Deep mutational scan, measured.
Amino acid sequence: TTVKVNGTKYKFDTPEEAQKFAKKAADKYNLKVVVDGDDLRVE
């Protein structure tokens, strides 16, 4: 599972880890998590 934040992709072994990271990033930058198929985007 990958998470894309500000054009940078981060790869995670499990969707749970990816979800946690995406949520933290979204909170930090005051953005929202967008599900894109198997991957997540923070925008």
Rank of each mutant, 00 (worst) to 15 (best):
T14C: 04
K28C: 15
A22F: 03
A26E: 03
T8M: 14
T1M: 09
V33Q: 02
L40Y: 10
V5L: 14
K20E: 14
E16L: 08
K32C: 10
T8L: 13
Y29R: 05
V3M: 01
P15A: 12
K20P: 00
G7S: 05
K4S: 15
E17F: 03
V5A: 03
Y29V: 03
V33E: 02
L40G: 02
E43I: 13
K9A: 13
Y10M: 03
T2K: 03
L40R: 02
V34F: 12
K9S: 14
E43M: 11
K20V: 11
R41N: 08
P15I: 11
V3E: 01
A22V: 03
A26I: 03
K9I: 15
K23T: 08
Y29I: 04
E16S: 08
V5Y: 09
K24P: 00
E16D: 09
E17V: 03
K9W: 13
V34W: 10
N30S: 08
F12D: 00
K32M: 12
K11R: 12
K23M: 10
F21G: 00
K4D: 11
E43G: 12
D13K: 13
Q19K: 11
K28M: 14
K32S: 12
K23N: 09
L31Y: 09
G7N: 07
T2G: 03
K28H: 11
D38N: 12
K11H: 13
V35S: 09
K28V: 08
V5G: 01
K24I: 12
K24C: 15
A25P: 01
F21E: 01
R41I: 15
K32D: 08
A26P: 01
N6Q: 07
N30T: 04
T8C: 15
V42M: 07
P15K: 12
G37N: 06
K20C: 11
T1F: 15
V5F: 15
A18P: 00
F12I: 01
D39F: 12
F21Y: 05
V5N: 01
D39C: 15
Y10E: 00
V3K: 01
V33W: 05
N30C: 13
T8P: 00
E43Q: 09
V35D: 07
V3C: 03
V34A: 06
F12Y: 01
A22E: 01
D13Q: 12
T8W: 13
V5K: 01
T1C: 09
L40W: 08
K32E: 09
F12G: 00
K9T: 15
K23Y: 11
K20G: 07
K4L: 15
N6P: 01
F21V: 01
V3T: 01
D38T: 11
K11V: 14
D27W: 10
Y10S: 00
N6C: 15
A26T: 03
T8G: 05
Q19S: 08
L31Q: 06
L31K: 06
K20R: 13
T14L: 04
K9G: 06
T14Q: 03
A25H: 12
K28E: 10
K23L: 09
L40E: 02
V35T: 09
R41W: 08
V5W: 14
V33G: 01
E16W: 08
L40P: 03
K28Y: 14
K20W: 11
V34P: 01
V42P: 03
T14W: 02
E43H: 06
R41S: 11
K23S: 08
T1Y: 15
K23D: 07
A25G: 02
K11I: 13
K4E: 13
V3I: 03
D36G: 04
Y10P: 00
T2C: 14
K32W: 08
V42Y: 03
L40I: 12
N6T: 03
